[in-house]
């Protein structure tokens, strides 16, 4: 069973991401984190096929979490995609700079989420 770690402070967004991915792939197990504080430990334990990481979170933001994970070579093979509530060119550039494998904008519709789920499944699962 493919494992997916989702790090997002929004309960609603985590649910939508899980719903979107599950609609395209039934054999996926999810680990949800509300913040990135223990992200490295959880990723080390779960060895997920992909980590979906929100950018704007209270406390440690997504870029800090990403930088911390990418500083450890043992996580080199784990894809990390960033997800954000808005399209910001600066954020996209920063995500790439810190070693993110992808950048998604949280869609404003159900159809958008389904498309996002399909995209993640086809690329990473």
């Amino acid at each position: 069973m493919d494992k997916v770690v989702i790090i997002d402070d929004s309960d609603f967004d985590r649910k939508m991401i899980m719903k979107a991915i599950s609609s395209g792939r039934s054999t996926v197990s999810f680990t949800e984190l509300e913040s990135g504080e223990n992200a490295a430990d959880v990723i080390a334990q779960e060895c997920p096929k992909i980590t979906i990481l929100d950018i704007r979170m209270p406390g440690i933001d997504g870029f800090e979490v990403l930088a911390k994970i990418r500083s450890n070579p043992k996580f080199d093979d784990i894809p990390i995609v960033m997800i954000s509530g808005s399209e910001e060119a600066a954020d996209r550039a920063l995500a790439t700079k810190h070693g993110a494998d992808g950048y998604y904008v949280k869609p404003p519709s159900v159809a958008g989420y389904l498309s996002l789920g399909q995209n993640i499944c086809s690329h990473y699962l």
Partner: peptide
């Protein structure tokens, strides 16, 4: 974010 939540 809340707007997206309302719409979805």
């Amino acid at each position: 974010a809340p707007l997206r939540k309302i719409a979805i």
